[in-house]
Design a binder for these strands. Sequence first.
RNA 1: CUCGGGGUGGUGUCAAUGGUAGCAUAUCAGGCUGUAGACCUGAAGGUGCGGGUUCAACUCUCGUCUCCGAGA
Length: 400
Amino acid sequence: MGHLKFKINSEYKHMRTGVLEVPHGKIETPNFVPVATKATVKALSSEDMKELNSQILMCNSYHLYLKPGLDVIKKFNGLHKFMNWNGPIMTDSAGFQVFSLGFGMEHFANKIGSYFIEDQKQSKAKIKKMAKVTNKGVWIDSIYTKEKILFTPEKSMRIQEALGSDIMIAFDECTSPYANKKYVSESLERTHKWAKRSLDAHKTKQALFGVIQGSYFKELRIKSAKFISNSDFDGFCIGGSLGKSKAEMHKILEWITKEIDPEKPRHLLGIGVVEDFFNGVERGIDLFDCVGPTRIARAGLVYVSPECGGTVKNKFRIKVTRTEFEMDKKPIDCTCNCKVCQNYSRAYIRHLFKSKEYLAYYLTSYHNLHFVLNLMEQIRESIKTGTFFELKKKWLSNNI
RNA sequence: CUCGGGGUGGUGUCAAUGGUAGCAUAUCAGGCUGUAGACCUGAAGGUGCGGGUUCAACUCUCGUCUCCGAGA
């Protein structure tokens, strides 16, 4: 067991608020973990993240192992000094790259959206998959060279030790949403063996979370939840494909949370749009991470509160690059008190995008993260005061 | 005025043997859920003008307008 304390303060139905304490600080839960894959939240600095009251960041083993490499990070005694971030850091194991650079790259699938974007034509470029799974580990190509690197549970642990994260994640196989039950079942056996190997290779006091897999198969999800919960992990991650619809994702979460130790923190990997926060928290999720807020920000998509009018299709966001905002003096979000909304207009931000000015990415990334971190704070507050469902209703009026 | 060389989407293009007008960029619109991708997908948009030859003209030809260069 690593250095981690998790204290649950209040519970309301299946949801709870708590404080997760790790060497570099405390994290109030439920909370959102901004993703800083290559030791930076894209377009933002560590000082910005502090200003945004982000309580933790997530970095990535695969990417940092390739660049700058462990020698550089060891020179700084870990990521915290290297990236000038004093707060908690969790590190992903490279398990997601097994999917994203493997099946995902070959089939242009993403772990959630693949079912919902089938009507869209996919890129014409033919890309070969860059990951090959074996029982020993996974051969993943470098994205920079053609070099093939074997990632194993032991290697992932060594990388994460060098990164010095507060919370490590066990190396797993993130399976494709298209994988059939036979494959997922075999993969799950492998992931469970790897979980044991990660625990055996765990030599430091860093906390270690195990990953529950099993795709959308009830039997496999429950099996995985039991197995990981009975192992000596400090917390749980829920990974992999979460079904073909939001309804299915909610069911999967319910199967899992019933089986796992309620005293330990639960992290839902890679999930995080507005409705997911409400629906996840309601089913007992403590932490979310997601690239969504920062990725869509760089394409001009910015979050808005329901009363500020999103699009018909998605009432939580607008595309600030649209012609209709050319003369718009209003801030991105009429209720937001972030520094971007206090100081800049939609028209100006639209102009920055049209001119390809870097500031565009900064302002929209900043706002989107403020938005989700602020929303999580509201959710925490609502659990404490027993007003969660009122808040949920205000945001998701039509029961998403 | 003379001689020469040009006029192809908004822009660029020594892209198109007389035979489906291509590419880039800009524009417009979608999309992105443990970040390969400040990207991907889609749409709209053109042969300066007028004749002639031909089954068929951006392409050959005549005229005209216009731009560039040189000369007077």
